[in-house]
Amino acid sequence: MRSIAWRLIAVAATAIAVSFPMSTGVAFAATGVVETSGAALTVRAGPGAGLDAWSSVANGSTVSIVCQTEGSSVTGSQGTSTIWDMLSNGGFVSDAYVHTGSDGYVEKKCSYVGAPPRANPRGVNAAISWQFARLGSTAHEGWCMRFQAQSYGWGASGWASAEVGGDWIQSHGYMRTTGIPPRGAIVWYHNSAGTGHVVVSLGEGKIIGTSVSGKVGVAGYLYRTGYRGWSVPHFPAAG
């Protein structure tokens, strides 16, 4: 009986160990301290030195790391590293400039969306970088579907509206309604006008797209009502 009891305890402990990280999300993110020669550390749109630079973090600042991923190689105060840290604002910094107490991963790997049936001209990180380069712009209001298609390298989506696109995605089995949208996923919404809305996921519950306080901006993926779900970045009618 005692051995059975211990086995039950072991099973319960394993279940807790497996489920706990999945349920915590970014609430228990790892932290690190920015260490440069004194200059501020550039925050980029994705894990690469060639991606859009849109913000910075002061030397000596403590940052929250919500996930980590592989990217371009950078040599900094902590040595040479290909690890990039996603911050709570949705941007990335090179781990080569962040003291975490480890040369390896200290947080879970960032979750990326799967490949769509039809390849896009531009990849996930390049598409997100394209959008970050337009952060704060009001020029794309009312054109959310075209904006997303263009970010992935297309001239236009080929759909009359995000509602039409979302209906196609749903009817063809691509719409997912559970789980936090992974990085690069297209996130779909209904709206009162019947035209729908669409943005792209940065991962870890963040999105970037049009109509965030009337401009291109970053928000949580439930920042508006009418959430439909998310899909791979598939634009079958685009050209």
Score class of each variant (00 low, 15 high):
residue 96 A to C: 15
residue 148 Q to K: 04
residue 211 S to D: 09
residue 236 P to K: 11
residue 199 V to F: 01
residue 209 G to W: 00
residue 95 D to M: 11
residue 185 A to H: 00
residue 136 G to D: 07
residue 160 A to Y: 09
residue 83 I to V: 13
residue 183 R to E: 09
residue 13 A to H: 02
residue 178 T to R: 12
residue 111 S to M: 11
residue 87 L to W: 00
residue 150 Q to P: 05
residue 25 G to Q: 13
residue 6 W to L: 14
residue 98 V to P: 03
residue 8 L to H: 07
residue 64 S to W: 07
residue 51 L to D: 00
residue 45 A to Y: 01
residue 215 K to N: 04
residue 6 W to T: 09
residue 139 A to F: 12
residue 160 A to K: 12
residue 153 G to L: 04
residue 54 W to H: 04
residue 130 W to Y: 12
residue 172 H to K: 14
residue 123 G to T: 06
residue 160 A to L: 13
residue 162 A to R: 00
residue 1 M to S: 08
residue 92 F to W: 11
residue 113 V to G: 00
residue 139 A to L: 15
residue 83 I to R: 11
residue 229 G to P: 01
residue 115 A to E: 15
residue 7 R to C: 13
residue 44 R to I: 00
residue 189 Y to H: 04
residue 41 L to I: 05
residue 153 G to M: 11
residue 157 S to K: 02
residue 33 V to H: 11
residue 199 V to N: 02
residue 58 A to L: 14
residue 129 S to I: 00
residue 186 I to A: 09
residue 166 G to N: 11
residue 149 A to G: 10
residue 26 V to G: 08
residue 137 S to C: 06
residue 26 V to A: 09
residue 36 T to R: 10
residue 119 A to M: 11
residue 162 A to D: 05
residue 236 P to G: 15
residue 175 M to G: 05
residue 200 V to L: 03
residue 129 S to A: 13
residue 106 V to S: 13
residue 81 S to N: 12
residue 129 S to V: 01
residue 120 N to Y: 02
residue 154 W to P: 04
residue 192 S to G: 09
residue 90 G to T: 02
residue 126 A to D: 10
residue 12 A to H: 02
residue 108 K to P: 08
residue 236 P to N: 13
residue 46 G to A: 04
residue 166 G to W: 08
residue 55 S to Q: 04
residue 18 V to Y: 03
residue 223 Y to M: 08
residue 82 T to Y: 09
residue 130 W to P: 01
residue 108 K to M: 08
residue 67 C to I: 11
residue 137 S to T: 05
residue 10 A to F: 15
residue 69 T to Y: 02
residue 6 W to M: 14
residue 164 V to F: 05
residue 27 A to K: 06
residue 234 H to C: 03
residue 119 A to L: 06
residue 149 A to R: 05
residue 11 V to L: 13
residue 17 A to G: 15
residue 1 M to G: 11
residue 128 I to W: 00
residue 205 G to L: 05
residue 115 A to P: 10
residue 171 S to P: 06
residue 159 W to P: 01
residue 213 S to E: 07
residue 226 G to V: 08
residue 143 W to P: 06
residue 88 S to T: 06
residue 235 F to C: 06
residue 105 Y to T: 12
residue 78 Q to S: 09
residue 186 I to R: 02
residue 66 V to R: 01
residue 156 A to M: 15
residue 239 G to N: 14
residue 109 K to G: 07
residue 223 Y to S: 06
residue 77 S to Y: 06
residue 92 F to T: 02
residue 91 G to Y: 02
residue 222 L to Y: 13
residue 131 Q to N: 08
residue 148 Q to T: 07
residue 31 T to Y: 07
residue 143 W to T: 14
residue 44 R to T: 00
residue 218 V to M: 05
residue 118 R to V: 13
residue 38 G to A: 03
residue 232 V to A: 14
residue 94 S to A: 10
residue 171 S to L: 10
residue 22 M to Y: 08
residue 3 S to Y: 15
residue 181 P to I: 01
residue 25 G to E: 13
residue 81 S to G: 08
